[in-house]
Simulated assay, not measured.
Amino acid sequence: MFEFLRSYIIYLALLSGSIGLISMHKLPGKKAKFLVILIWFSALIEFVGYYFTYWTGLLNYYVYNFYMFVSFSAYILLLRSLLLKINYRLTAVYFLILFMLSFFLNIMYFKEDPNRSFTYSFAIGVVLVLILSCLYLVEIFNSDKILNFKRSVFFWYILGILVFHVPFTPFMLAINWFLIKQDDSVFSLVLFILNILAHSCYIIGFLWSEKKYNY
């Protein structure tokens, strides 16, 4: 019934990506512009993922596992660049190594049939990003930035990441651990709603942020 919704996710990415381009004048540094690149990259992945089976005859897990590896690595590096304390930044480096290790172990575990979702690597990535995001928020709330944190595009982007990934993780694990039959209609509906929430955060960040808080 709701299977068609998944094909509309790319339009959400195109919308937030376009608003990001329009808001480029408020994104002064490479770090801020990197957010727009990540959104457009997600739009490209949605496009390729949608047609991958048609083009190759293979399931599109290859595409989304690659996207997971790139996106979570990018999230961790972004959070590392935002953190101020040396020990927090070192923690981010360790987390990046841990995530990459989990991903390659997943590849080894499924080497006979790699065309499947790397659920465990996804879950590990979410936990690591969640921890680093909490450290980032702690630094904000313990500094003068607390007065204007809503004016930072980084705050809204990280909020968008969490709004999507934190609820989606138990949904994926439930399918994997409890062998719940995946209903494509329910899966597409959940995916679409979470993408609406995430891209809404990105759009708010681009529209509400101010240049002086986006360095």
Rank of each mutant, 00 (worst) to 15 (best):
S7H: 04
Y8L: 06
I9S: 04
I10M: 15
L12T: 01
L12F: 05
L14K: 03
L14Y: 05
L15E: 11
S16M: 02
S18D: 09
I19T: 10
I22D: 03
P28R: 11
G29S: 08
K30S: 15
K31E: 11
K31V: 08
A32Y: 03
F34H: 01
V36H: 02
I37G: 14
I37E: 11
L38V: 07
L38Y: 06
W40A: 08
E46M: 06
F47Y: 12
G49Y: 02
F52Y: 03
T53E: 10
W55C: 14
W55A: 08
T56Y: 12
T56L: 10
N60S: 14
S71R: 06
S71V: 15
F72T: 06
S73V: 06
A74F: 05
I76P: 00
L77W: 15
L79V: 08
S81Q: 14
L82A: 05
L83Y: 07
L84C: 12
L84T: 15
K85C: 08
I86C: 09
Y88M: 02
R89P: 04
R89H: 11
T91A: 14
A92M: 07
A92R: 02
V93Y: 15
Y94A: 12
L96I: 06
I97S: 06
L98E: 09
S102V: 05
F103G: 00
L105W: 01
L105V: 15
F110P: 00
D113Y: 14
N115M: 10
R116S: 07
S117Q: 05
F122L: 13
F122T: 11
G125D: 07
G125C: 13
V126Y: 01
L130Y: 09
I131A: 08
I131T: 04
C134V: 11
Y136C: 07
L137Q: 02
L137S: 07
L137G: 11
